[in-house]
Design a protein around this nucleic acid. Structure first.
Length: 416
RNA sequence: GUGGGCGUAGCUCAAUGGUUAGAGCACUGGACUGUGGCUCCAGGGGUUGGGGGUUCGAGUCCCCUCGCUCACCCCA
């Protein structure tokens, strides 16, 4: 084989692609009732759009971005996530002049240079939503409600909803200091990975799977105790609203986000059926990002759903059904071939899926092909049928056959 | 970036260091001249991922390399 696809990307083929189409159409229908409209930002941006928002020291920016220089020497990056481009577009197109809140969704590919594994690709796809201009915690709850409803409608079960508040620029530094102080006394019992986390992103130590670090977590200071009154009140209200909407959730004080722009609410939806990369969807608030991008102060929040992971879960639950042709023409003789050629064109024009056989092979061979294609009906035409002005139909599921006049084909098929 | 597992026909897999690398499924045709599925028969299809080495002899053993996959890391 001369060429292969690049590592970590894949071809999306039928019948799986049918499932993707279903998911996309559910997205459009379902999100619309929450007032979300589609936005289609480009798949590439100036590199700073990502490095300034996601955080210079995050893994994504440090080692996972597809970055290159265009012919004018500018640094361009294939989007590793969707929020930053949408925020950029929100500001550039003055969408903040429209009545708040402004709610948008997008569907499309993201790119991260990582080692592929189950549920993790270098080109993957997200359904993302962003809502701008509303700080009320009911907006957070509304968004989780939409996410919950969407996943339910997609037919997925056994999901865990976790929420947390990581505070704001006022209270988070205080917690960070407290945690650093605590961990500084315990460096001896940290695993090698956590020694690195201690320097880079200490909050992540709480998330460690190693035995020693886990027991440390019990005694570590908790973010909940360090939230300022604003953040604490916001979080408490959110929990109340989630209860009111009967959204089952768990508070996970160890939950951390990998992107720097998050403030206050963060959340994650996971499934045990996914393997090690178990997050189906995740998101949170980013109340300062619009301002940092040069827009007016605008509270905002959003989430993204991993489409590959979502489709994996749906496939596991109900598989994929392959659509089949309605009619497969089987002909004997030139005259019959010509007739079926014309008929097929007309039928297709009326929306019937018709397949033709150009092989000129034996009747049995043509019928076998009709069967292999999974067609519902074989339409058989030979000299007898032509002189009688009929087609002979054979229902492939049970072999029942008979004749139908050519004018009566559509009624026979239940078309119109 | 690190570690484990696996690379033989389109797919799933056999083959103790020893003939010309096989089977099932799939594909094409026939048995069955205008009736599919079931059965039987036949046919096409291979650089055993690639390179080097050991050996009288390598799909099999050794080294390198590439790919896939799972996990770590990180995340959707």
């Amino acid at each position: 084989m001369k060429y292969r696809a690049i590592k970590g990307v894949r071809d999306l083929l039928p019948p799986e692609v049918n499932l993707w189409q279903e998911v996309e159409s559910l997205t459009r229908r379902f999100f619309a009732s929450y007032g979300y409209r589609e936005m289609r930002p480009p798949v590439m941006e100036f590199t700073e759009v990502f490095s300034r928002s996601i955080g210079e020291t995050t893994d994504i920016v440090e080692k996972e971005m597809y970055t290159f220089h265009d012919r004018a020497g500018r640094s361009i990056t294939l989007r590793p996530e969707g929020t930053a481009p949408v925020v950029r577009a929100y500001i550039q197109n003055h969408l903040y002049t429209l009545p708040s809140p402004q709610k948008y969704y997008y569907i499309g590919p993201m790119f991260r240079y990582e080692r592929p594994q189950k549920g993790r690709l270098r080109q993957f796809h997200q359904i993302g939503v962003e809502a701008f201009g509303e700080k009320d915690p009911r907006m957070d709850a509304e968004m989780l409600d939409m996410l919950r409803g969407f996943l339910e409608r997609a037919g997925i079960e056994g999901l865990t909803f976790e929420v947390n508040s990581i505070g704001c620029e006022v209270c988070r530094p205080a917690y960070r200091e407290a945690l650093l102080g605590f961990l500084g006394e315990e460096l001896g019992s940290l695993c090698p990975d956590c020694l690195r986390r201690y320097r880079v992103n200490p909050l992540r130590v709480l998330d460690c799977k190693a035995e020693g670090c886990r027991s440390l977590r019990e005694r570590a200071p908790r973010i909940g105790e360090y939230l300022c009154t604003g953040c604490a009140g916001h979080f408490e209200a959110l929990r109340g609203h989630l209860d009111a909407l009967r959204i089952p959730f768990r508070v996970n004080q160890a939950m951390v986000r990998g992107l720097d722009y998050y403030r206050r609410t963060i959340f994650e939806v996971t499934s045990e059926a996914l393997g090690s990369q178990d997050a189906v969807a995740a998101g949170g608030r980013y109340d300062r990002l619009v301002e940092e991008f040069g827009g007016p102060p605008t509270p905002a929040l959003g989430f993204a759903i991993g489409m590959e992971r979502l489709v994996m879960l749906i496939m596991e639950r109900r598989g994929v059904k392959e659509p089949v042709p309605e009619v497969y023409f089987v002909t004997i003789g030139k005259e019959a071939e010509a007739l079926s050629f014309r008929l097929a064109s007309e039928m297709r024009g009326r929306g019937v899926w018709v397949e033709l056989d150009y092989s000129g092979a034996s009747l049995r061979s043509q019928l076998r092909k009709a069967d292999r294609h999974g067609a519902r009906y074989a339409f058989i035409i030979g000299e007898e049928e032509i002189s009688a002005g009929v087609v002979r139909y054979k229902r492939l599921s049970d072999g029942e056959q008979g004749e139908v006049r050519i004018e009566g084909i559509y009624r026979f098929l239940g078309v119109e």
